[in-house]
Computed example of a mutant assay.
Amino acid sequence: MKLSGLRFALCGPRRAEDLALILQKQGATALFRPTVQTVLAEPPALEAQLRKFAQEGADWVIFTTGAGLEELAGQAGTLGLWEAVRAQLERSRIALRGYKAGRALERHGLEAAVEGEDGTVEGLIEALQAHAFAGRRVFLQLYGQPAPRLVRFLQEQGAQLEELLPYRHLPAPEAELTRLLEEILARQLDAVVFTSVPQVEHLLGHARGRGRLAALGEAFDAVWALAIGRVTAKPLREAGIRVWHPQTERIGALVTEFAAFRAGGERLAPGSKR
């Protein structure tokens, strides 16, 4: 088996069991080391926003994650509002960041007017620049944390903006972050797998707060940092960390392409990046 004997730390709670199973089939050991915890919004706050949208609608709705769209749909369904919400979505222009939001939209039989090409906030802003927002009502679903650049862009364009935050990504408990950091520094892992930007940011923030960021970067010359795709890889590269990501942004591809990469005898020099 191509990854036999290797130890992979998994930093994301979502779909971690699926990823672990794929790794185990390749002979690897999967260790659950989440760097984030997801906290759902308080139902009363989200209910008020959903009722307002169901009644008044909006000119634009911007979805930044598939999980956010599904959470809003689930909450609306629980409240008996989904049909009204969906009807308003059909009347709105919809913009998306990333393919996961697109897939979630398709599952509900809806279409997007605008899509960011590369899955980044910057790409979404670029796509939105061709449209007028002055005086337009815009509902913006955020992706677990603030998006100041996107919010600032819409405000500067004169949008009447309402932000929906169906869930938040918070750092994992300090003890868990410390355990992962120490394992990486001690080179006790072969690879660390990141499937979202917050997972990266919370580990880097934890290391930075303890004055260990430089040491972490050095350790990643011996331990592989694996990212699900280009967007997740970006903050690692910006921190000067060697990072590998698959050509296809899927959990299965991350494992199979990395296994093929290793089986092909390919190696990157320490400190280099893909």
Rank of each mutant, 00 (worst) to 15 (best):
Pro146Ser: 03
Ala147Tyr: 09
Tyr167Asp: 05
Glu71Trp: 06
Gln49Asn: 11
Asp190Gly: 09
Arg237Gln: 15
Lys2Ile: 04
Leu110Ala: 01
Arg208Ile: 00
Ala207His: 01
Lys2Cys: 03
Pro270His: 08
Ala259Leu: 08
Arg7Ser: 05
Pro171Val: 05
Leu50Gln: 05
Phe258Pro: 02
Arg136Trp: 05
Leu177Pro: 02
Phe153Glu: 13
Pro146Trp: 03
Gly109Lys: 05
Leu3Arg: 11
Leu89Lys: 04
Ala87His: 08
Leu236Tyr: 05
Glu238Val: 06
Ala73Val: 13
Lys100Val: 04
Thr248Lys: 15
Ala28Asp: 02
Leu154Ser: 06
Pro198Gln: 09
Glu266Cys: 12
His206Glu: 11
Gly27Ile: 09
Ala175Ile: 09
Val85His: 03
Gly123Val: 00
Gln160Asn: 06
Glu218Lys: 14
Arg152Tyr: 06
Gln160Met: 10
Ser272Leu: 13
Ala48Pro: 00
Leu72Glu: 07
Leu204Ile: 08
Leu180Asn: 07
Gln75Asn: 09
Pro198Arg: 10
His202Val: 02
Glu174Lys: 12
Gly264Val: 07
Gly252Val: 01
Glu218His: 12
Arg107Phe: 02
Gly211Ala: 02
Gly271Val: 07
Arg14Ala: 06
Gln145His: 15
Arg152Ser: 14
Val121Gly: 11
Ala73Asn: 01
Arg97Ile: 02
Phe258Val: 00
